[in-house]
Simulated assay, not measured.
Amino acid sequence: MTETHATITSGAPVFPPGRYGRRREPARRRPALVALLAVALVAALGVAAFSEYNKYGDPDYDAQVITYTDITDSQVVVDFRVTVPAGGSAICALRARSHDGAELAREEVTVTAPAGESQVTARHRLTTSARPFIGEVVRCRPAG
């Protein structure tokens, strides 16, 4: 008969020797390395976002539709306001869509602000292939 011990001095379980193979040591944690990698990832994403915003996001060229009127079976007139750098020009893409969202017309219009002014109001008539539901400014970008 073998003797069993009623108390185990350490908190680790006791396994019979040779039965379950060699026990692995717990992995060493490296919180400083994980934190450093997280900071590097956030910095890289920040640089990428800033670069893409500078390339594609241009807050100097902002357009607002004031109204769209004179809707017939073949046209819509769009009145819009564009914010540009003082005395600058912009090329704005306008489009007309039907009630179901289909694009009926698309045109690019160049608008130029008077010297010293940063806003220009323009009116443009889009000739459509069917009766439009809405006229809108898709985007504006620097001219040239």
Results as ranks from 00 to 15, higher is better:
96 A>D: 11
64 Q>P: 00
5 H>V: 06
101 G>C: 01
125 R>M: 10
127 T>C: 00
132 P>N: 00
52 E>D: 02
110 T>D: 01
12 A>P: 01
120 V>R: 07
75 Q>L: 07
66 I>A: 11
65 V>C: 05
115 A>P: 06
68 Y>A: 15
104 L>Y: 07
95 R>I: 11
57 G>D: 04
80 F>V: 02
36 L>V: 07
109 V>E: 14
44 A>R: 04
43 A>I: 10
140 C>Y: 04
84 V>C: 14
89 S>K: 10
105 A>R: 03
9 T>C: 05
78 V>E: 04
52 E>T: 10
12 A>G: 11
11 G>K: 01
99 H>G: 14
74 S>Q: 15
56 Y>H: 14
128 T>R: 00
4 T>S: 06
85 P>H: 14
75 Q>V: 05
52 E>I: 03
133 F>T: 01
74 S>V: 13
57 G>T: 03
64 Q>A: 13
121 T>K: 11
4 T>G: 02
24 R>E: 15
81 R>V: 14
116 G>H: 03
22 R>D: 10
110 T>Y: 03
87 G>D: 07
13 P>D: 00
37 L>A: 10
76 V>P: 03
23 R>G: 15
14 V>E: 06
58 D>S: 04
113 A>M: 12
76 V>W: 00
135 G>I: 09
97 R>Q: 08
90 A>R: 00
93 A>E: 14
37 L>V: 07
54 N>F: 05
64 Q>H: 03
139 R>L: 04
67 T>H: 05
100 D>C: 07
76 V>S: 02
137 V>D: 03
129 S>M: 02
15 F>N: 09
19 R>E: 14
67 T>L: 02
65 V>P: 11
45 L>C: 09
132 P>K: 00
73 D>W: 03
73 D>A: 14
35 A>K: 09
41 L>C: 12
132 P>G: 00
86 A>M: 00
23 R>T: 09
125 R>P: 10
136 E>D: 13
32 A>I: 06
10 S>V: 00
54 N>V: 12
38 A>W: 04
47 V>I: 15
110 T>C: 06
114 P>D: 08
51 S>T: 09
1 M>I: 03
93 A>C: 04
136 E>G: 10
47 V>G: 08
123 R>W: 02
47 V>W: 08
94 L>N: 02
67 T>S: 14
12 A>L: 15
24 R>S: 15
62 D>C: 01
88 G>F: 05
79 D>V: 12
41 L>I: 07
109 V>S: 12
65 V>T: 11
45 L>F: 03
75 Q>F: 10
79 D>G: 01
133 F>K: 07
125 R>G: 06
128 T>W: 01
45 L>S: 06
142 P>L: 09
133 F>Q: 10
98 S>I: 00
70 D>R: 14
138 V>F: 03
28 R>F: 02
100 D>Q: 13
12 A>N: 12
94 L>V: 05
114 P>R: 04
96 A>H: 04
113 A>N: 13
50 F>S: 11
65 V>Y: 02
122 A>Q: 05
140 C>N: 14
